[in-house]
């Protein structure tokens, strides 16, 4: 099997964004998270009372703020990629700024949420639900911060490298991963924050 094709047909095409490597990484990352989700669901069925009572202590509103921040950041990132394809460098820069700012909203919101939990004496060792809560959201948080580091790099290098094909592929790859991080949260939010509302 060839190792990361040297040519990337349509790497800047809307129909085939990104390179094969990032798609492989996203797929495998998705499998790991889905395994976590599966084990979570299994434990929820084993300990329904603990999970339901613990979910009372999460704020769906806080989760909703995180969701909206990520969704709009993802939209801004898509705008940045589209603008770059159209050689609208200033617009791409502006969109990247918004993507980063909204990502920062997610991070700050999450840190306040964690701080609130620790302040109430809730830790990953409190019970099974909170073990999963901190593990799943913590891993997701690491994905968010890691991707934002790459997004920052892209924003910094935009002025210098915008015309290069390698930069465009890089931005597409980062954008793809940011959308993946967003999609992950769309599973995490209802699973952790909302299922209590429907019992």
């Amino acid at each position: 099997m060839p190792n990361n094709s040297h040519h990337h047909p349509g790497a800047t095409s809307p129909d085939h964004p990104g390179t094969s490597g990032i798609w492989t990484f996203v797929f495998i990352d998705m499998v790991i998270f889905f395994l976590f989700f599966g084990v979570y669901i299994s434990e929820r069925q084993r300990l329904p009372d603990i999970f339901l009572s613990s979910q009372h202590q999460l704020s769906p509103l806080v989760g909703l703020v995180s969701t909206m921040a990520l969704l709009t950041s993802s939209w801004a990132m898509a705008e940045a990629v589209r603008a770059l394809r159209e050689n609208k460098i200033a617009r791409a820069g502006c969109a990247l700024n918004w993507a980063l700012a909204l990502g920062a909203v997610f991070i700050v919101n999450k840190l306040f949420e964690y701080g609130g939990k620790f302040g109430h004496g809730i830790t990953p060792l409190t019970n099974g639900f909170f073990t999963f809560y901190f593990l799943i959201t913590g891993l997701h948080f690491l994905h968010v911060t890691g991707t934002m580091i790459f997004m920052t790099h892209c924003r910094v290098r935009l002025g210098v490298e915008a015309g290069a094909l390698t930069y465009r592929k890089k931005l597409e790859n980062v954008g793809l991963f940011w959308h993946f991080v967003d999609v992950l949260w769309l599973f995490i939010f209802p699973m952790l924050y909302l299922t209590e509302l429907v019992g």
Binding site: M1, P2, N3, N4, H6, S20, G21, T24, F25, I28, D29, V31, I32
Partner: peptide, 20 residues
């Protein structure tokens, strides 16, 4: 495995799996 693009001993997906 992933970064050494010239080697064909092990496919890239195995490298991603290892890290995951």
């Amino acid at each position: 495995t992933v970064l050494n693009r010239k080697q064909t001993i092990v496919p890239a997906w195995a490298g991603w799996c290892a890290m995951a």
